[in-house]
Design a protein around this nucleic acid. Structure first.
Lengths: 117, 117
DNA sequence: CGGTATCCAAGCTGATACTG
DNA sequence: CAGTATCAGCTTGGATACCG
């Protein structure tokens, strides 16, 4: 179960979920990790514009929420891999219809032919 | 089609949709109007804690995004009714799985018995 | 009733520099 | 490589007062 950051403050399931994915880059992290397990530097390259600090804090929160798994290899140089948990995967699936809506109604029909994303 | 506030800045449909529902109270407004057409004061009462200024600005944005219809009756005292457009209804439907996810995984099992919301 | 106008506080985000 | 520390800025949201 994901962490409720404002326990008891939610009116319905949607705003509870919104709290979990509220960070500016979180849905993009979710999408990137859904494709493949990534290292920290990989994620940074996949999300153009994100800073290390923000990426790290988002990953910490998502880890605390049980969406992301952080695996540390005891190597030099350091090696850390991030992947989705089962909960993260289920969240991604729940987001799919919203993604389809956004592609169709915000991005517009001209973008739907490369709608792989 | 909804208004893209950051044209060309979206990586995928999900963050485009996130931009449209990003306001703190927007999903709750969407949910309230999905139940029934509401007047301004009604909405304020349905969303405990929202201020007039924020409610008004959110409604303006959602109107600009084509999610909400604003109907003004030429009466004294003033009478304004807000309702969802077809686009707003479709967005609500796209949000349903996310709401179910939030109820199940954030609010927790103990809340699912009054899962009407 | 249904808003605006003004001011203000908090928090999120970003830039930069540094470290184990 | 994978972060942390510090500082600065800006956007969001909130408090309050007032208006047609």
């Amino acid at each position: 179960m994901a962490t409720a950051r404002r326990p008891g403050a939610y009116v319905c399931g949607i705003d509870a979920a919104m709290d979990v994915i509220g960070g500016k880059w979180k849905v993009l992290i979710l999408w990137a990790l859904n494709e493949k397990t990534c290292r920290f530097g990989e994620l940074r390259r996949l999300l153009p514009g994100v800073t290390e600090k923000v990426l790290a804090s988002h990953l910490r929160e998502m880890e605390a929420d049980g969406l992301v798994h952080r695996r540390v290899y005891d190597e030099v140089p350091p090696h850390v891999e991030y992947s989705l948990t089962a909960l993260g995967i289920s969240l991604n699936e729940a987001l799919a219809p919203l993604g389809a809506w956004g592609r169709e109604h915000v991005l517009g029909p001209q973008d739907t032919h490369h709608a792989v994303r």
